[in-house]
């Protein structure tokens, strides 16, 4: 499962490592860390948000390991992808390394490529890809899409997005 957590760290060196170590010990996969170094809570602690993947049965174990090492776990939530979107990409997708494009989206932590269908008619001809992207929210989805368009632009790929169907 994908989990997001709000932690509070003591304002002394080495605390972030202390918080992240148990995740890798339990074979979790860290996706993003937002570390507000300058911010302090009224309690004098430093707030940190992390997102990671972990087997759901290991979550309780992780939380107690964190608490034991003095990291306070303020909030635990399952990260849900609420927004979905389909996008077409046309061009020399394979030559220009599609994995790299997908990785860029996946590494955001708030969006993920959850489906890819590729159609390659002949060598040297442009291929077509159908990408499904999930994201945690509308803003995040738009951010992932602009990331994708940015990469596509550099690689001379055409991106076809769905029309805006929501009334704004």
């Amino acid at each position: 499962m994908r989990v997001s957590m709000d932690l509070e760290l003591k304002d002394i060196p080495g605390q972030l490592l202390l918080a992240l170590q148990p995740i890798s010990d339990l074979k979790g996969n860290l996706i993003s860390v937002v570390h507000h170094h300058e911010k302090h809570t009224p309690r004098g602690t430093i707030p940190v948000q992390i997102v990671f993947e972990i087997d759901s049965e290991k979550l309780d174990n992780l939380i107690s390991r964190l608490e034991d090492s003095g990291v306070s776990v303020v909030r635990v939530g399952e990260e849900r992808f609420l927004e979905h979107c389909a996008v077409i990409i046309i061009g020399h997708i394979v030559h220009t390394n599609i994995q790299d494009t997908i990785d860029k989206i996946d590494s955001t932590g708030f969006a993920e490529v959850v489906g890819l269908t590729l159609s390659m008619p002949r060598v040297n001809q442009p291929s077509s890809a159908f990408l499904k992207i999930d994201a945690t929210g509308k803003k995040e989805l738009n951010e992932a899409l602009s990331l994708l368009k940015n990469v596509a632009n550099k690689k001379d790929l055409l991106v076809i997005e769905p029309i805006e169907t929501q009334f704004i």
């Binding site: 046309i90 269908t117 159609s119 008619p121 442009p126 077509s128 159908f130 076809i160 805006e164």
Partner: peptide, 27 residues
């Protein structure tokens, strides 16, 4: 503006199988 010259029939089919038609839209 982007035109339609780069659109492939394969891409249109992929989109159609997922419930979309490809159109040139002005907005």
């Amino acid at each position: 503006s982007v035109g339609i010259t780069k659109i492939t029939p394969e891409s249109m089919l992929l989109a159609y199988n997922d419930g979309y038609v490809t159109k040139l839209i002005g907005e």
